[in-house]
């Protein structure tokens, strides 16, 4: 039986703020409110990476947030998609090239859908989510890695070790 078509019908989201001004977060929550009501599409805000399919990231990814973002990303089971919500998450926005930011989510983890706007409008977010669902349907169940991470993995994956080796590469040295 092919279960792929059900992926579109019940996407559960995890929402993570990597140092945003809260504007986009409010808009995301507005999507759940009666006016926009994304639960029509079966979308639930689980708040738990282990049971989520879509990672909604807002904010420009501050240096302190990037390790946490990576941890959360590895905790999510495949297939999964990442949606960068807002100008900051797409490119760094007004914070671009500041000393404490990473200039967008795609510098840390692979991003599938970019939702622009400052702040992104709920309609745009819903649109982005629908696009993300198409991508989710076409994805496989293989492990996804950030492009910069060259860790050599064989299934079954021990994600704690994977995270450590990725971080080592990221920082150039091992950090505990």
């Amino acid at each position: 039986m092919d279960f792929k078509s059900f992926r579109k019908k019940s996407p559960w989201i995890l929402h993570y703020n990597t140092g945003s001004c809260n504007g986009c977060d409010i808009e995301i929550l507005a999507c759940l409110s009666p006016k926009y009501d994304v639960e029509r599409f079966g979308i639930l805000n689980r708040g738990n990476p282990k049971q989520s399919d879509i990672l909604l990231v807002t904010g420009p990814v501050t240096k302190r947030a990037k390790e946490r973002l990576l941890r959360l990303y590895f905790e999510m089971p495949e297939p999964k998609v990442v949606v960068a919500v807002g100008a900051c998450a797409c490119s760094g926005g007004v914070f671009r090239h500041m000393y404490n930011v990473e200039n967008g989510v795609d510098k840390v983890i692979p991003v599938d859908v970019y939702v622009p706007g400052c702040a992104a409008r709920p309609e745009a977010i819903i649109d982005g989510l629908i696009k993300a669902l198409e991508i989710l349907k076409s994805k496989g169940k293989d492990l996804e890695l950030p492009s910069w991470c060259k860790a050599d993995v064989k299934p079954p994956v021990n994600r704690a070790k994977l995270l450590n080796s990725c971080l080592e590469e990221f920082h150039g040295c091992r950090r505990d």
Partner: peptide, 22 residues
């Protein structure tokens, strides 16, 4: 609100079937 379709729990069920388990 409008809410999800009646069969939504079963969609969730089949989707979870297809996830990689960790």
């Amino acid at each position: 609100r409008v809410g999800p379709p009646l069969l939504q729990p079963f969609y969730d069920f089949f989707k979870l079937m297809d996830k990689r388990s960790i």
